[in-house]
Amino acid sequence: MPVYCITGANRGIGLEFVRQLAQSSENTILAGIRTLTSDLTDLKAVASPSTHILECDSSSVQSIHGFVKEVARVLGSDKKVDYLLNVAGVNIASWQSSLTLGPDDLQAQIAINVIGPAKIVELLLDAGLLSKDVRVLNMTSGLGSMQRSSEIKPRKCAGYSISKAGLNMLTVHQSEDLKPHLPGAVVICMDPGWVKTRMGGEGAMLEPSHSVGSMLGVLHGLKEGDNGKFYHYTGEVVPW
């Protein structure tokens, strides 16, 4: 009876994770969304009886504290999170270059794309809610790879790239920092590919179902030796 905790679960890739995982009644799903006042029609349509919709605004440490308390309430004393998927993310002002960065836009992306996943892992650990062999997936992007990003022409999404590179470094730190607490934990970051979602925008060619199905295959096959790696949804290791 594995427990999956997913942020950004009400649309796009997060919603597809819920849809696929909800196919099995054995899966307990903690579906984190930015606010419970959102339109939940799509999420409720794919949710299973063992799916719990909880508020988690990744840009707010206060909201994350409340989310962790709700996770503890739902799981009780006999369950812990086996798979933590930090999917929530934003790409703000994609037209900005390194020469035109808006400070507020960059800070907002770092708050959600980096600080949010950092505090979610930290607070779930502090509350004793992560299983001893937890798998943590931080959803990144090929734009967060220094090598891959350097090859992209024309340049785009400077702030988003910077924040995802920060998330990649966070992953490396988490992969080592969790070891003294949870020796069997594995933390990775993963590029889902260019997926047909609202964030993916025009030009995206990859169906969410294919991307997510492939990522779940990688996630479920992780071994301790994979700790701290950067994966493509296909299972290929991505250069930093």
Rank of each mutant, 00 (worst) to 15 (best):
K80W: 01
K80G: 02
A108N: 08
Q62I: 04
H65R: 13
P103T: 08
V68R: 00
L84T: 06
H52V: 03
G116A: 10
S59Q: 04
N91P: 07
H65E: 14
K119M: 15
H52Y: 14
N91H: 13
A72H: 07
Q96F: 11
G102P: 10
I120N: 04
N113L: 07
N113I: 10
L54A: 09
V87P: 01
R73Q: 09
I110D: 01
Q109V: 05
S58R: 00
D78A: 12
K79I: 03
G102I: 13
W95V: 13
S63W: 06
H65P: 00
S58E: 14
S94W: 12
S60W: 04
S59T: 12
G76P: 09
V71W: 05
V71I: 14
I120H: 05
Q62G: 01
L123H: 09
I92H: 11
L84H: 05
D57S: 02
L99M: 13
Q62W: 00
K119Y: 14
D57F: 04
Q109G: 03
H65D: 14
L84C: 07
S98I: 15
G89V: 09
V87Y: 04
V114P: 00
L54K: 04
S60M: 06
H65L: 07
A118D: 08
G66M: 01
S58C: 14
W95G: 13
V74M: 04
E55C: 01
S94N: 11
L85C: 10
S60H: 05
T51E: 08
S77A: 15
I115Y: 03
S63C: 07
I53Y: 01
D57Q: 01
S50E: 09
D78H: 11
A111K: 10
S98L: 15
S97E: 11
A93W: 02
Q107E: 14
V81Q: 05
T51P: 03
Y83V: 02
V121P: 08
R73L: 06
S97D: 12
D104E: 15
S50N: 14
D57K: 02
P117F: 13
P103H: 06
N86P: 10
D105Y: 13
L85E: 04
G102Q: 11
S98T: 13
D78L: 03
V121W: 10
S59C: 02
L123I: 09
S94D: 12
V61M: 09
D105E: 15
W95S: 15
C56D: 03
I64E: 12
Y83F: 15
L99Y: 12
A111E: 13
Q62A: 12
L85A: 05
A88I: 11
L85F: 09
I53P: 06
G116E: 10
A111R: 05
S77G: 13
N113Q: 10
H52M: 00
D104P: 01
A111L: 10
K119I: 14
S98R: 06
L106K: 08
I112D: 08
I53G: 01
T51G: 07
V74L: 01
T51H: 03
H65W: 07
Q62F: 01
L101R: 06
L123A: 09
N113A: 09
G116Q: 10
V114W: 00
V74D: 00
D57H: 05
S98P: 08
K69H: 12
D82V: 00
I92W: 11
D82P: 00
I112F: 04
S77Y: 11
